[in-house]
Nucleic acid binder design. Structure first.
Length: 884
RNA sequence: GGGCGCUUAGUUCAGCGGUAGAACGCUUGCUCGACACGCAAGAGGUCACUGGUUCAAUCCCAGUAGCGCCCACCA
């Protein structure tokens, strides 16, 4: 016997363990079914489960579970990402607490330490995912740094290098002076800061009292200026182009060049050029062949390229010194407040310094071409479609991708250097040695490039590296390309784009056919969740409080097709927990009434209209739910099931079935029991992908322990021929009638003194029974067409009511304020007349009659008739009320 | 500066060229043999604004306003 309420914690662990143990999650490469593949976006090895994970993994799990039931061999390929910078930072922080740095350990020991840490606390998230019910094929779990994936990374790197798609270059990079590594453009975020704009006077060479004014937010960089640019057509500076200014403090003559970069409208129209420390200036410097003077070291301290006084100074310290010295020389023209954006590393670090270094680059523009085409031609489709624009926009303007990082945790770049700097890019050291020997004619000592690859390089290979590439494994042949990739829009560039580029290049085929993009999870007011705002919702706490099913259902209900952000409100989760309880209790009711599954049940052979109706409705619902899953309309799945289970199955079917279950007719009783069990079993199937735990438990209870697990059950057949439209019409009519009756009873709120004989259609005997059980029925006075006020025999203050030939007395004055009622009826009549006028006008409009479809015209005619009839009744009612 | 999105009930949001929907909240009444995590009823909307297209616009188009996001730039 089921308990009175559903207690999630008691069944979640039990069923998860059973599923896992039985191999329900496992894909089967030998299966004859069609494959359905989702590559799990690998969470960071450092990570723990947050609500965003809950959304993305719930969506994936729903898709996997639905398709597993719908007859596919479903593979959900899990794994984790080594997350280069993030992980290295975590371990360095630990070392810091011991008063050490990674340099105290050395590269090898440090790496050992990270591996140790990974083995011990890494993978927390994978364990946490189980609490959500994630049905991934866990034994296939991969790690981006495991041996197979690492060799895939080396092979791709070497191949791309040989094709000229990876190369070394000396360019400005985004340098993180704290982490001491280059980062990609995407890892830089612009933060608004309030600062100053300083205007400096640079003396023109050979002219006393002649200055050119330049402005900067970064005074210290002036020490690295190697030019001043003005617009070629700026009249103020025509005579100065080609001359030099003397750079103050440094006393270096630097040229005044004409360049379109200088905007005459901005500031003085002249701009100082620091080619080694600003991306725009770098381009200007290249165009005019200006010196690239690097004035910072890796810590963003000033180096030996500046006057001795400033050497070794930290950048902000240098700023103060430069400003003080310029002030002393009287060269500061003015100082303004200025708000501008400053680049920061996305790992919460210090301001980024544009720095000139040699790095490895991937030729992203070339790799992007087929990736763009694949989306243009629909080989990969984004859902929602509008994200394709975002994808295109970025891909079409893609910059060279800096793939090297000066870190110790990651895939070390497979490049070795000879004594003269000659580079040998090979998959391993032996091959590098062999190549070097061939090159030099003798054995030489090689030095390996110390850099590692950007984390996203290995993530880009995820769709094929996880299933065996470069080996032609059965998995690779069967599960590539994936069916759908599920992820947030925030990593379209980081990850989706890279997978598209890498997979198309390596595999020659798109990595997935559909990209489903969901929003981010925010709090109930649309705010980003953050610790400082104290609005963080912890999925594990929610699971504990309301159950995994309630959380999953909530996330599904909020996942709208437009893929907007998801605003999560705990009250809503609670509401869906209540829904789980509701279903639970409906099952309890079935159990109490001994509704059992009948193996020979045939929905097309039902006799009672109520049962024919619910069978039809279940079939319709099943078809709709399946369609919604296919179209990624998870909100429709959730709302459809919520509404159907609560308001159709529980409110009407179960309620109307009660008299049948306690009635005399044994055949009807038996049929109703069997139908109820059948309907419940179907609903439990439909709901399973969203609420796996409670449905598994209820299924077990309903079908018995030998029936097999719901998770691996087939999505049942929903044959259109089982829909009985006549029964649907009848019962829906009955439902609307009962609703009206209840409304009247509720409104009058007295023991009703009228008896109503209802001429229900004979098919709706059940309804008549139900209606009799109501204490009575009175239609609201005004709405009853054949209502008559009696005379003589009626007690004073009462009204004689005649409904369908039966007479009764109602103490009307006691329960209805006649004046109020009249006002209400007048208002309603007014509305009615406006409506009639509108409709009549419409129906006289010839263009409407000729152009609108017939059914629309007919609908409008019908509406007019009904409104007129109602209007007539209202008039009569008002008249009679007035007479009282 | 470029791009994308949003504006519908008190709130969060669906929806759609042909009579405005859900959930929650609110009001009223309920110890009705599954369920108070419940039952029943009810109130509540010029679908942001202005034009246009159409027989018909909340829906399509254009513009306006407000809000949000992404990219780039800000000497």
């Amino acid at each position: 016997m089921l308990e009175k309420t559903f207690r999630p914690s008691e069944v979640e662990a039990k069923h998860y363990a059973r599923w896992e143990k039985s191999g329900a999650f496992a894909a089967d490469p030998k299966s004859s079914k069609d494959p359905y593949t989702i590559m799990m976006p690998p969470p960071n090895v450092t990570g723990s489960l947050h609500i965003g994970h809950a959304l993305t993994f719930t969506v994936q799990d729903m898709l996997i579970r639905y398709h597993r039931m719908a007859g596919y061999d479903a593979l959900w390929q899990p794994g984790m990402d080594h997350a280069g910078i993030a992980t290295q930072m975590v371990v360095e922080r630990q070392l810091g607490e011991e008063g050490k740095t990674r340099h105290d350990l050395g590269r090898e020991k440090f790496q050992e330490r990270v591996w140790g840490w990974k083995g011990q606390s890494g993978g927390t998230i994978i364990k946490q995912l189980r609490h959500l019910g994630a049905s991934a094929d866990w034994p296939r779990e991969r790690f981006t740094m495991d041996e197979g994936l690492s060799s895939a990374v080396r092979k791709v790197f070497v191949d791309l290098y040989r094709e000229g798609l990876i190369y070394k270059d000396l360019r400005l990079v985004n340098w993180d002076p704290k982490l001491h590594t280059a980062i990609s453009d995407l890892e830089v975020i612009q933060k608004e800061v309030k600062g100053k704009l300083w205007h400096f006077k640079y003396p023109v060479e050979g002219e006393t009292e002649s200055f050119i004014v330049v402005a900067t937010t970064r005074p210290e960089t002036m020490l690295g200026d190697t030019g001043v640019a003005v617009h070629p057509e700026d009249p103020r500076y025509q005579s100065l182009i080609g001359k030099n200014v003397i750079l103050p403090l440094v006393d270096r003559p630097i040229p005044i060049v004409a360049d379109l970069h200088a905007d005459p409208e901005t500031g003085s129209g002249a701009v100082k050029i620091t080619p080694a420390h600003d991306f725009n200036d770098f381009e200007v410097g290249r165009r005019h062949d200006l010196e690239m003077l690097n004035i910072f070291d890796e810590n963003a301290h000033l180096n030996d390229n500046v006057p001795e006084k400033y050497r070794g100074m930290e950048r902000y310290e240098a700023r103060k010194a430069v400003l003080a010295d310029l002030e002393a020389l009287g060269l500061i023209d003015k100082i303004e407040d200025h708000v501008y954006k400053m680049p920061h590393g996305d790992r919460g670090g210090v301001p980024i310094e544009p720095w000139l270094t040699e790095q490895w680059y991937a030729d992203a523009a070339t790799l992007a071409k087929p990736a763009i085409e694949a989306v243009e031609t629909g080989k990969t489709v984004f859902v929602p479609k509008r994200w394709e624009n975002t994808y295109f926009e970025w891909m079409r303007n893609i910059q060279p991708w800096c793939v090297s990082r000066q870190l110790w945790w990651g895939h070390q770049i497979p490049a070795w250097y000879g004594p003269d700097g000659e580079v040998f890019v090979e998959e391993n050291e032996a091959e590098a040695n062999a190549a070097a020997e061939a090159h030099y004619g003798e054995k030489v000592a090689l030095r390996r490039d110390p850099d590692v690859l950007d984390t996203w390089f290995s993530s880009g290979l995820w769709p094929f590296s996880t299933i065996g590439w470069p080996e032609q494994t059965p998995e690779l042949q069967r599960y590539y390309p994936g069916s759908v990739l599920v992820t947030g829009f925030d990593i379209i560039f980081f990850w989706v784009a890279r997978m598209m580029m890498m997979s198309l290049h390596v595999m020659g085929e798109v990595p997935f056919k559909t990209v489903y993009i969901h929003g981010l999870v925010r709090d109930s007011h649309g705010q980003k969740m953050s610790k400082s705002k104290n609005n963080v919702i912890d999925p594990l706490e929610i699971v504990e409080k309301f159950g995994s099913d309630a959380l999953r259902f909530t996330l599904a209900a909020l996942s709208i097709p437009a893929g907007q952000d998801v605003k999560l409100d705990e009250a809503r989760i609670e509401g869906y927990r209540n829904f789980a309880t509701k279903l639970w209790n409906a099952s309890r009711f079935c159990e109490m009434n001994e509704a059992k599954l009948d193996p020979n049940f045939d929905p097309s052979k039902l006799t009672h209209p109520l049962n024919r109706w619910i069978a039809s409705a279940v079939v319709k619902n099943g078809r709709e739910i399946a369609a919604s899953f296919e179209n990624y309309r998870f909100n429709d799945v959730a709302n459809g099931l919520y509404h159907f289970i609560w308001h159709s199955f529980c409110d009407w079917y179960v309620e109307l079935a009660k008299p049948l279950l306690t009635g005399e007719d044994e055949a009807v009783k038996a049929e109703t029991k069997a139908t109820m069990a059948w309907a419940l079993s179907r609903l439990v199937h439909q709901l399973h992908p969203v609420m796996p735990f409670i449905t598994e438990e209820l299924w077990e209870n309903l079908a018995g322990p030998d029936a097999g697990q719901l998770i691996v059950a087939d999505w049942p057949e929903y044959n259109e021929d089982w829909i009985d439209e006549e029964a649907v019409t009848d019962i829906e009519w009955a439902i609307s009638l009962i609703t009206e009756v209840r409304a009247v009873r509720n409104e009058v709120n007295v023991p009703v003194a009228a008896f109503v004989e209802l001429h229900l259609r004979e098919t709706s005997g059940v309804v008549a029974h139900r209606v009799e059980k109501l204490s009575g029925l009175i239609k609201r006075l005004a709405r009853i067409s054949n209502l008559e006020v009696g005379e003589g025999t009626v007690p004073k203050g009462a009204v004689q009511v005649l409904v369908e030939g039966t007479v009764a007395h109602m103490p009307l004055a006691e329960v209805i304020n006649i004046a109020e009622e009249r006002a209400r009826l007048d208002k309603e009549l007014g509305k009615s007349r406006v409506e009639i006028e509108k409709l009549e006008k419409k129906l006289k409009n010839e263009q409407f009659l000729s152009k609108a479809p017939d059914h629309v015209v007919a609908e409008n005619r019908g509406r007019l008739e009904a409104t007129k009839a109602n209007s007539g009744k209202l008039e009569v009612a008002i008249e009679r009320l007035s007479a009282l």
